[in-house]
Write a protein that binds this DNA or RNA. Structure first.
Lengths: 348, 348
DNA sequence: TTGTATGCGTTATCAA
DNA sequence: TTGATAACGCATACAA
């Protein structure tokens, strides 16, 4: 006792309680129906005495279900990710499921490896922020009806549940708000354009669509889609040109950070010199000066729904029909894009 | 083919390749030493053809090692947590280990349940941000020599590896810096004092110690340790008193947020009206105005070390001697606590 | 109401 | 160089 002793198994409990393994198993699975009170007590006591803990691995092997799911994210450091993860874990907890978290860093190779390893570990399902580059593997999972949900991005041609923001709507909200506040020259700021990065693509498209809907000019130079490290430099050029934008639309928090750094370095006033709106309601939005107007994603609802859909697949594997679900962004109006009164002579 | 077909097992591969299961197993475990080239090829081909994937659950059962560890955090939404997690996952990835992440919300009951369930799932080890309230369970793990590492907090009387910040040092850095910049009336802002929350306790203690070392007055009212929701109110009182502090030391990012909200609402200037330093290098520190001076924790190093220590225990269970490891905080000097020039007549 | 026997998919031991 | 066979710890059909 107290020594690095060997594991206690069901057999030990059975022996001590003077019953068979099956009876112990019954007990553990709460199938008390045909069990006498005294054997119940005896087993209980034996378990207590030995400090027995069931081995879920063995059970999983038998039952073909591990009670764990895998979640492959781009990077857990990203805020959206942690919020989605928290929501997923909350629904998993209610079902006594656990979550294995992996970072793909948006690298198809890492993603591939994780998918294979997690499936080898017999996870009951997978929620993935997909790189979009492992189509064969995705297809294989749908063919095998392996429970799978995509989130943040969808992959054209792969017919699975996907949880996405209504990105077009988000861009539209931004343009609409700017427009109504009197800003006409609007620039969008984004990481580099990449076909398969759906949110980025859709937000940029949505932006252009909205501009044209509102009859606003679409200037090529106003679409700044660059590596984060070159954004400030480009903005500098833009703002020293003859025709600088009046407003900046950051398609995510990373772009926003670059904009704010640019604004600070160049001592621009917000919103007098530039109005700003971003997608992603960053935690410091309200304490910033000026308080930042943002377009929030319902991240928790999205994570929750992803988990719900996954469990739907897990529990009723057969007749689940995949859907593309769009969640609505909401404007959180603060001060960074407010209409200018005539403080500075500038009128809407 | 294409239907929700049954799992391919080693037996199927063996049959197709016309060898025994054991031979396939050899192959999979790369024990080629006594294997002829042609059986090797045959097996390889069969695996390919069938799309065989090994079942790690079965392997785990046999080998008593699952290749997964559990990490129980307070809340994945907390920045420190995600950084530590990222570091842990990076070292796990190199060893083909996976990480199950659970949120205890600092509730002993949840923590207890997770510890039990994860152990039932046969995780190879556990890294815990401990609530500190499940002493019996912790003790039990050390007694059984179950691989275990604490991080962020330690638990007096529980002899396990623990990774902590040098909290005293952190407080000392803050006081030292304030002092040298000419601030003498320093207030500390923290969530409520609780004995077992080591970082909080140590930071407050360290603060008081530092004040006395520097011969600065220790005013009871200057220790603001309250629920986040009451901090602003209390600061208001403090700053409308006869003797308001000149500097505020936030012991973590949450306290900092309250301070910044307070400062904004009351239109105080930083550092002219209040100087500010916080522990935790928040992501917006450098783009804030004024840029925030912070004391950073080496979060990634800490996570990495936690994982390293855990693997040390996993691989050499016997002669591992538990240690309390302290990591050094570093001052990141920016503008929120800079010495005042005589702009406003105020002198150091 | 409880026990026996078998199987889950591997790995390991020992023969062959 | 390869193959039977017995574990691993649990669950379940069936027997008793």
């Amino acid at each position: 006792m107290g020594y690095p002793l060997k594991k206690i198994t069901m057999a030990d409990v059975a022996r001590l309680a003077n019953v068979s393994k099956s009876t112990v198993s019954q007990y553990l699975n709460k199938r008390y129906e045909y069990m006498s009170e005294k054997t119940k007590k005896r087993i209980e006591k034996a378990i207590e005495e030995l400090g027995y803990q069931p081995n879920i691995v063995a059970r999983s092997l038998k039952q073909k279900s591990t009670g764990t799911i895998g979640v492959i994210v781009f990077n857990i450091l990203h805020l959206l990710t942690t919020q989605v993860l928290r929501a997923i874990e909350d629904v998993c907890r209610k079902r006594d499921y656990h979550v294995i978290v992996c970072n793909s860093d948006d690298h198809p190779e890492k993603e591939k490896k994780y998918i294979n390893m997690l499936r080898a570990k017999q996870v009951d399902g997978l929620i993935i922020f997909p790189t979009g580059k492992n189509i064969d593997i995705y297809q294989n999972m749908v063919k095998e009806q392996f429970p799978l949900v995509f989130i943040d991005r969808m992959v054209p041609g792969v017919n699975v549940d996907a949880i996405l923001l209504d990105n077009y709507k988000a861009s539209n909200i931004a343009v609409d708000y700017f427009y109504k506040q009197g800003y006409k020259k609007i620039s969008i700021v984004s990481p580099p354009f990449e076909q398969h990065v759906i949110p980025r693509t859709e937000r940029i498209e949505g932006f252009q669509k909205a501009l044209s809907d509102y009859g606003l000019p679409i200037k090529e130079e106003y679409v700044v889609a660059l590596e984060l490290s070159s954004i400030k430099e480009r903005l500098k050029i833009l703002f020293t040109s003859d025709d600088p934008p009046e407003a900046l639309f950051a398609i995510n928090d990373l772009s926003l950070m670059e904009i704010l750094a640019f604004v600070k370095e160049n001592h621009l006033r917000v919103p007098e010199d530039v109005a700003i709106i971003s997608i992603d309601d960053v935690p410091f939005a309200s304490i910033f000066t000026p308080a930042l107007s943002t377009i929030a994603q319902p991240t928790f609802e999205m994570g929750e729904k992803a988990a719900d859909r996954l469990f739907e697949q897990i529990t009723q594997k057969n007749q689940h029909v995949p859907k593309l679900l769009r969640f609505q962004p909401t404007l959180i109006e603060r001060d960074s894009a407010k209409r200018l009164t005539n403080k500075r002579g500038k009128v809407m």
